[in-house]
Write a protein that binds this DNA or RNA. Structure first.
Lengths: 144, 144
DNA sequence: CCGGATCCGTTTCGATACTG
DNA sequence: CAGTATCGAAACGGATCCGG
């Protein structure tokens, strides 16, 4: 019996090579994880577990793995806490920020259950490019 | 036996009132349907069935129903073909166009399997607001 | 404690066949 | 042509356990 891939746990939807770019976000959690990574300052496994909408740990681990596999997220050991891991967005991941902001804006406009500060929405509408740059800059600053 | 809700077919994820706005797009197809409605000129049930990535008819029916339920899509009989139905975006649906364009741009940048004309991407980057207005206008023109 | 894997019942998906 | 019925397959997700 070949030792090759027999025991590997298939990541999700038959490994990384998904053809369609929007397919990556074709599930309930992936987009939320990216959003919280980009806009909510979350970086530890536990951050996502605790809040969000109550994602299960196995699902979270799977999504993070998939995102890493696609080059949207990177994993690093936390230099301050030996047993922690820091998740952060790659450049590819940060390039999703414009789309995320537009979705947040849309959600804030039509979904009253999503509490988004009015000032935040106004900035998206009036100075989006600048805002994108700022969010990116702050993410990069944190990364170093 | 109470005739109340015993025989009702639950639409999807326990009826319309989904709390989280991004939840609506938390599946493989919804976002693609909206995209094709907005940018690919599709309007008949068959249009989505035929191309796209091969969505099953029951899934398509379900997603369209959900989108209608959320006020993103409307259904109208086709005045020219008695047995056809025209699906179109509401204002709420059209308000997703900025987000869609950003996602398309992202996909075009990082996913070489999604063939998007370079000129299209450049317009998104250089004249996005104007482009949004044009797409909306053309959708409204078709609707009347 | 922390990230994450395993188990396993439940829900949802989706290919096919079918109906008005 | 728009949509539904069926039913096996896949994904989800809660509880629990594990190595560091």
């Amino acid at each position: 019996m070949l030792p090759s891939m027999a025991t590997q746990k298939p990541a999700r939807r038959s490994e990384c090579p998904i053809s369609y770019s929007l397919d990556i976000f074709g599930d309930r959690w992936t987009l939320l994880v990216v959003r919280d990574l980009a806009l909510a300052g979350k970086k530890h496994f536990r951050d996502f577990l605790d809040s969000d909408e109550g994602i299960a740990s196995n699902i979270l681990a799977d999504r993070l793995k998939t995102l890493e596999c696609f080059g949207i997220v990177t994993r690093h050991p936390d230099p301050e806490h030996a047993s922690k891991v820091i998740y952060s967005l790659t450049e590819k991941g940060m390039d999703l920020i414009p789309a995320l902001l537009e979705l947040v804006r849309w959600g804030a406009k039509y979904d009253d259950k999503t509490p988004v500060p009015r000032a935040f929405v106004q900035r998206i509408e009036q100075a989006r490019d600048q805002m994108v740059a700022e969010v990116k800059a702050s993410l990069r600053a944190k990364a170093t």
